[in-house]
């Protein structure tokens, strides 16, 4: 609780992070409040297609097939957030497990796992994601899995490095002397120390996952219709930039602001936790 209080205090001084937080609160409100805030249902069709913003009943206009854009935008916030959170949690979980095992046990285990990490790291991420989505078929869960599969290496390297440093510290020896097993030691004693850096990295990972979802949509491998995601809205509108620019400006700005929010928050958190750390 105290940590949070100091953090709020810190925010007052760090306007970048405050801006990030405001953007993310807006995102969260949109995502959670979508059913209440939306004037329509995301899959209601209206006769007017590609109506411009300000059209009666459609504050942001309608999309390429005549669905209300503000509604799609709000529900899209849910999907984008879901994709981002899902991919990041998956990446953090796998990355933590691999990194902690490698760092904690060291030796051959470490070397072997680090080769695997290097393999994934040097493999072109976008190819891996494209191949995974082609394998599983486009859709929400495929996108989450694909983005998780390319994102875990960053976490693994981070966690391994931290664990290598932490395990020499006294509290680890003390815990071990008190009879803590390996698993307990890692989860109960090491994890709390890793939480900060992992949250920071998670914030950046979320940012990149939201962008990657858009990239996959561009390649035609995003979520399946009619699920509204910002990436698929942007990709759908890109051929219409000349006649209906709002179809790209609106989801494009939404993605940019959300990603900006995650990046700024990550920067702020990192500064707060340890201004000297770099990721």
């Amino acid at each position: 609780m105290d940590r949070i209080k100091t953090w709020v205090g810190h925010l007052r001084n760090d306007r970048r992070a405050a801006l990030g937080l405001i953007l993310l609160i807006a995102l969260l409100v949109g995502a959670v409040g979508a059913p209440i805030l939306s004037p329509h249902s995301p899959n209601d069709f209206f006769d007017g297609v590609r109506e411009t913003p300000g059209t009666e009943g459609h504050p942001l206009g309608t999309d390429s097939v005549g669905r209300d854009l503000v509604t799609r935008l709000l529900y899209g916030a849910r999907v984008s957030l879901l994709v981002g959170l899902g991919a990041t949690i998956l990446a953090a979980f796998v990355g933590f497990a691999v990194g902690a095992i490698a760092g904690y046990w060291g030796g051959w285990v470490d070397r072997g796992l680090m080769v695997v990490v290097e393999v994934f790291l040097s493999f072109p991420a976008i190819l891996l994601a494209v191949a995974l989505v082609a394998f599983m078929g486009p859709g929400l869960s495929s996108v989450v899995l694909a983005l998780g599969a390319v994102g875990w290496t960053d976490f693994a390297r981070l966690v391994r490095g931290e664990v290598l440093a932490l395990k020499e510290r006294e509290f680890v020896a003390a815990a071990r002397a008190a009879g803590a097993g390996d698993l307990r030691l890692i989860v109960r004693h090491l994890l709390p120390h890793l939480a900060g850096p992992m949250v920071v990295m998670g914030s950046f990972a979320l940012a990149s996952a939201v962008l990657s979802e858009a990239a996959l949509s561009f390649l035609g491998l995003g979520v399946s219709p009619p699920t509204p995601s910002w990436g698929s809205m942007l990709a759908d509108g890109r051929g219409l930039m000349r006649v209906s620019p709002h179809l790209t400006w609106i989801p494009g700005l939404a993605i940019t602001l959300a990603v900006l929010g995650f990046n700024l928050l990550g920067d702020g958190l990192r500064d707060f936790l340890d201004p000297r750390t770099r990721y």
């Binding site: 899959n43 035609g220 491998l221 219709p225 009619p226 990709a235």
Partner: peptide, 15 residues
């Protein structure tokens, strides 16, 4: 199969 027009057509047919 993937592609904007396929997707637009599909949601219309769906409705």
């Amino acid at each position: 199969s993937e592609g904007e027009r396929m997707e637009r057509g599909a949601v219309l047919i769906q409705s």
